[in-house]
Each structure stands twice: as structure tokens, then as C-alpha cells.
């Protein structure tokens, strides 16, 4: 198994607060890994460090063995990481298709002169962009209108488009930040199915998720964070049995509450 992503002792501090304090994990090809932890545990900060939006204060992020720590987000994306955001970050005034085309920017295939002169190369490339955009929308099971602005779409539809956009990047690693937030039961089942199909494409997935049912069913390994520290890393069964996790996150009193919220 090739190691896709390796995070080594990642740390970032905002002022005196250590948002991420010594996070280490690795992701193999086609693996699905969940990062869980209470709110404010530093999960999204860790994602932002991996994708270059924050510069980690120390530690290293290796992608296919190459050091990508502290590089520009665009360079990290080009190296093979794509992501979604916790609160949807689509382009609200642009059409659904254009949003998915954003993920295809690195395909190239035309330059500005082609565009001005409308060369055959340009027309071929535009047709390929459109076809590919439809393909990824079909892949995620998006069934709404595709030529309309994103702001006209429902929340669930927007989530689909955001995943389609990230998939169109065709990277070996996909980071999903709370993909199931705000979805109902059926939509969550669809998401589970979608993640399995993404894995079949050869893409490894790291997801942040609060829905324990989904996490336990989907992920091969779970990384648990609390107050920026990594407190556990193992299979779902191991994590469930880990006393530190139970104390910090799945504690006796919290157990009911967490599963109830997760299934809501």
C-alpha cells in the first residue's frame, strides 16, 4: 500500500491557544479515515494546515513522500489534495456547471489566445470541460438544474455540487469537512454509498464528522482529537473501547446525547 498522506507532529497556535498540538496520522491509498472530536478540538484547523490555508508552527505534512508543509493552497491542490469546506464555499453567482468546472482548472487545454480566437483547440477543450462537469454531477447523484446559479439551489443540492467540484480535481486525496451536516437519513445513506464509490476511483478520503453512526460504518480508521491533542488512532472497534476516548468524547453521560444528535 502506498502512503498518500503523512502528517507528522503537526502543531499550530493562535496566540496562546494551541489549536492543533502534535497531530500525527497517515493515510494509505483508497483508505477512508475519520477525524472526530468535540467542537473546538482542532479538526478544521488541522485540515487548514494540511491544505495550506494555515501555516503550521511546526510539524510536517508529506504527500506521496513529498514535503508540502506551508506551501500555497493552490500548489498543494495541484500536488493532489482536494477539499470541501465546513460551511459551503461555492461560487454563488455562477452556474452549477461553472462551479464544477472550477475543479477542472488544472486540466488546462487552452490558453488566452485560443479563447480570443476561438480556435478548434478551444472549442474541443470547452466541450470536454462541459462533458466532464456533467459526468461528475452524475457521479455524485445530483439531479437538479445545472445551468442555474448556485444560490437558487437547496442546501442538500449545494453539498452535492461541492463534492462534485472537489472530485473534478481528480486528486488522490479528498478531505471532506463535515459532509453529513444538515443531511437527513436518506441523504446520509446516499453519502455513505458515494464515499464507497469515491474510494473505488482510487481516492483516499479523510473526513471530519460528528455523526458517529456514519463514522463507525464508513471509516477504516478513526483519529480522535481533543483540545488540539490526538488522543487515539485506531479501528472503530479500538476507538470505541479506548478509555481516553470514552472519557473525552463518548463519556457515559454524553453517549446518549451524541448518538441522539447524530441520528437527528
Amino acid at each position: 500500500m502506498t502512503v498518500v498522506l503523512e502528517v507528522k507532529n503537526l502543531q499550530i497556535a493562535f496566540g496562546g491557544v494551541k489549536a492543533v498540538d502534535g497531530l500525527s496520522f497517515s493515510v494509505d491509498a483508497k483508505e477512508i479515515i475519520a477525524v472526530i472530536g468535540p467542537n473546538g478540538a482542532g479538526k478544521t484547523s488541522a485540515f487548514n494546515c494540511i491544505t495550506g490555508f494555515y501555516k503550521p508552527s511546526s510539524g510536517a505534512v508529506l504527500l506521496y513522500g513529498q514535503n508540502i508543509t506551508g506551501k500555497r493552497p493552490a500548489d498543494i491542490a495541484a500536488a493532489g489534495v482536494s477539499r470541501t469546506f465546513q460551511n459551503l464555499r461555492l461560487f454563488p453567482d455562477l452556474t452549477v456547471l461553472d462551479n464544477v468546472r472550477a475543479g477542472m482548472h488544472l486540466y488546462g487545454g487552452q490558453n488566452w489566445l485560443d479563447a480570443i480566437l476561438h480556435t478548434p483547440r478551444f472549442k474541443r477543450s470547452e466541450a470536454a470541460y462541459t462533458e466532464e462537469a456533467h459526468h461528475w454531477l452524475d457521479f455524485v447523484g445530483y439531479s437538479g438544474a445545472r445551468g442555474v446559479p448556485i444560490r437558487n439551489l437547496s442546501y442538500g443540492q449545494q453539498k452535492h455540487v461541492e463534492i462534485a467540484r472537489a472530485l473534478a480535481r481528480k486528486s488522490g486525496l479528498l478531505l471532506l469537512d463535515e459532509p453529513a451536516a444538515g443531511l437527513n437519513y436518506t441523504e446520509k445513506r446516499d453519502l455513505l454509498d458515494l464515499c464507497q464509490r469515491i474510494r473505488e476511483l482510487g481516492t483516499a478520503i479523510v473526513l471530519i464528522e460528528h455523526d458517529m453512526g456514519l463514522v463507525m460504518e464508513l471509516s477504516e480508521r478513526i483519529v480522535v482529537m481533543n483540545f488540539g491533542k490526538e488522543i487515539a488512532d485506531g479501528t472503530p472497534a479500538e476507538v470505541k473501547a479506548n478509555p481516553a476516548v470514552i472519557e473525552a468524547y463518548l463519556g457515559k453521560d454524553d453517549d446518549e446525547e451524541v448518538s441522539a444528535r447524530g441520528d437527528a
Binding site: 500555497r72 493552490a74 469546506f85 464555499r89
Partner: peptide, 12 residues
């Protein structure tokens, strides 16, 4: 529309 999202898609 969104500089950060564009950057995350590999757009410099």
C-alpha cells in the same frame, strides 16, 4: 466570488 475556494481548487 470566493478567493479561498478558488485557491483550494488549485487556482493560483
Amino acid at each position: 466570488e470566493d478567493e479561498d475556494a478558488a485557491e483550494a481548487m488549485g487556482i493560483h
